[in-house]
Design a protein around this nucleic acid. Structure first.
Lengths: 211, 211
DNA sequence: ACAAAATTAAAACGATCGTTTTAAATGAGC
DNA sequence: GCTCATTTAAAACGATCGTTTTAATTTTGT
């Protein structure tokens, strides 16, 4: 048995390359080359390139979403106990902060963050549907919780604002790893924790805006 | 001479397919097939697939950005005359509203909107760099104008918030054309004008949020 | 009308892709 | 130690890609 499992080496390489170059621009030969395994190993262990992508998503997303869901329910529980409405900033925080913590803990998590950010606007159904399926339950819970926190805002407006929020979060996740825009007069990027704090503040303000 | 110019037919088909399937997932054969021109016509008229993409961007973006820039300068001019700070909502509006008007005027503009939304988070440098180059000048102007409108907000924070704004706008442009998320309990999508109004309100609130 | 330039048409090239096949090597169970 | 299932290795397959080449056709200038 080699140092690291073959399946794991493939997953790590795929995660990195999918995030850096995109799903379709990454060949199985590039993945197996970086993972130092045989080309056929992908189809043997995962069945197909599509199935590999799903495995890449699931490996990280299942534990991460579990944490987010626990945090979300904790926020809702506390609010119920105190008989107050949950705060938007806490609800959004329960979604964003585990992402940041996860990002800083595991190696390769940075790549995954980028990958998830892309998946939100991915044109290809292969990638998009695979990802959407995994985040839909949590997304619905967050949506319902926000409705609870902001009862004065009509549902269809809140739904639109949630879409804006998804866009801001996804784009931020994408660009956290790389230089934001190579522009003249651009300031040095802030550390990830500061960005996350600013993002929570930004989207909370947008979600709570008077109609 | 056929009804419509060959170059135009290629541009129309490419715009539609790039927006629907993405740049790399669209083959020149699919484009020339839909445009009903010969395969070699793309390389003859544009030189390469990459150059075709750039032509697709430029055709729409040059006139659109001109309108946005005129509107932006008009807002700044009015503010100077009245000796007041420009309003964030007007600055953002000068960016978003021409997009909406353009989207509803020309046929194929809807596809282009989607295409631009994608380009913001595109992993491939071919697509990304080509697009970024065309919007950088206007983006810098908008950034400077916002700094003027919000002098109390530190530049690096405003820069981060502008990134969030770009993400929200890009994602919204992407999803305007298609069903937002195929979820249970999802509400019917609002009309584009209403979405644009909500978006302006949302990002203005986020940009102006107290630190 | 004719020569030259521009455009379109058809076919082929070389490269790369995901996948499959076939064979060799490795491991566990008895 | 032998058997059998698992895993890895190497090679090839068929398909599709962007691009180029060569020839036919149309348009333009005079």
């Amino acid at each position: 048995m080699p140092q690291i499992d073959t399946k794991t080496r493939i997953l790590d390489a795929a995660e990195h390359l999918f995030a850096r170059d995109g799903f379709h621009s990454t060949s199985l030969r590039a993945i197996t080359g970086q993972a130092q395994v045989n080309l056929a190993a992908v189809n043997y262990h995962f069945g197909s390139k599509d199935a590999l992508l799903q495995a890449v998503f699931e490996r990280r997303l299942h534990p991460l979403n579990q944490i987010r869901q626990d945090l979300l329910e904790q926020v809702l529980h506390t609010a119920r106990q105190q008989n107050i409405r949950p705060r938007v900033i806490d609800l959004i925080g329960s979604f964003i902060e585990p992402t940041l913590a996860f990002r800083q803990s595991e190696s390769g998590a940075q790549d995954f963050t980028t990958l998830v950010g892309r998946a939100l606007v991915e044109p290809d159904p292969t990638v998009r549907d695979c990802f959407i399926k995994l985040v839909t339950p949590l997304f619905l819970q967050l949506s319902a919780a926000l409705q609870l926190a902001l009862p004065q805002i009509p549902a269809e407006i809140l739904q639109a604002r949630l879409q804006f929020t998804l866009g801001a979060m996804g784009h931020t996740m994408c660009t956290l790893g790389r230089p934001p825009l190579e522009l003249p007069g651009i300031l040095p990027p802030l550390p990830a924790e500061k960005i996350a704090e600013l993002l929570i503040n930004y989207v909370s303000s947008g979600l709570e805006a008077p109609c």
